[in-house]
């Protein structure tokens, strides 16, 4: 079937894959940092009591969540030049990823904050804390712990989403696979290696998520042992 599967070719292309992998890694890192920034701002806006401030955040998040990333990517890639903004593909790609993941990050943070039981807020109010103190001392520390695992989940999604950047000619991991496939007519070797590289990233991130979950769970919660 795949009788001529050539490991030699894979070995020869390892430098190219390595470079693509590295690009994927650091562009994902930058994009995720951007997503955190976007997410925090959008979430803060959405939690404002004033409807006027909420509106842009709501529109942004709903628009992102109801449209495909690829369409968003093309929107920026083909649309920004029209506004006179000419950026290298890499930057457009990172921008698209940041905005896209940012919307999901906003929802994750919001869910984390809302998951804190009302009793906690009431306890804070009863001790005479101001809104700022409640947020800083009671809500955010607890919300932080809760949001780490889903945030890492979103990071995994972002790394997989970065593959789409190959379609606007960014020299990342999937593009390395595409090049090998088209240059040497060896799609099997090319894409299986590509998949394997992504799996390495995936399991690495999952291990990180598991570690963080344990770190989060290690904080002594109320030890309720049934009598």
């Amino acid at each position: 079937m795949l009788g001529n599967f050539s490991f030699r070719v894979i070995l020869e292309s390892l430098p190219a894959f390595g470079s693509g992998l590295a690009t994927t890694l650091w562009l994902s890192l930058i994009a995720f940092a951007g997503a955190l920034a976007v997410g925090i701002i959008a979430c803060a806006l959405k939690l404002q009591p004033a409807k006027l401030l909420q509106a842009p955040a709501v529109v942004f998040i709903d628009a992102i969540r109801a449209t495909p990333l690829l369409a968003q990517l093309y929107f920026l890639y083909f649309g920004l030049p029209r506004l006179g903004i000419v950026l290298p593909e890499l930057v457009v790609g990172i921008l698209a990823l940041s905005l896209n993941s940012g919307a999901y990050v906003a929802e994750i943070i919001r869910a984390g904050i809302l998951s804190i039981p009302r009793g906690q807020v009431e306890a804070g109010i009863s001790s005479g804390m101001t809104f700022g103190q409640r947020m800083r001392l009671v809500i955010l520390p607890q919300a932080f712990k809760v949001t780490i695992p889903p945030l890492l989940g979103q990071a995994i999604v972002l790394v997989k989403d970065s593959a789409l950047l190959s379609l606007i000619a960014v020299a990342e991991l999937t593009r390395a696979g595409q090049s090998l496939a088209s240059d040497r007519f060896m799609p099997a070797e090319a894409f299986i290696t590509t998949a394997a590289c992504y799996l390495i990233l995936y399991y690495g991130l999952k291990a990180l998520a598991a570690l963080s979950a344990r770190w989060v769970g290690l904080r002594p919660a109320r030890q309720d042992r049934p009598a």
């Binding site: 997989k160 989403d161 970065s162 593959a163 789409l164 190959s166 379609l167 999937t174 696979g177 595409q178 496939a181 799609p187 894409f191 299986i192 590509t194 998949a195 992504y198 799996l199 995936y202 399991y203 999952k206």
Partner: peptide, 11 residues
């Protein structure tokens, strides 16, 4: 779940 959908389609 560990690989991009794009890569799966190519495969």
């Amino acid at each position: 779940r560990g690989t991009p959908f794009l890569v799966q389609i190519f495969l």
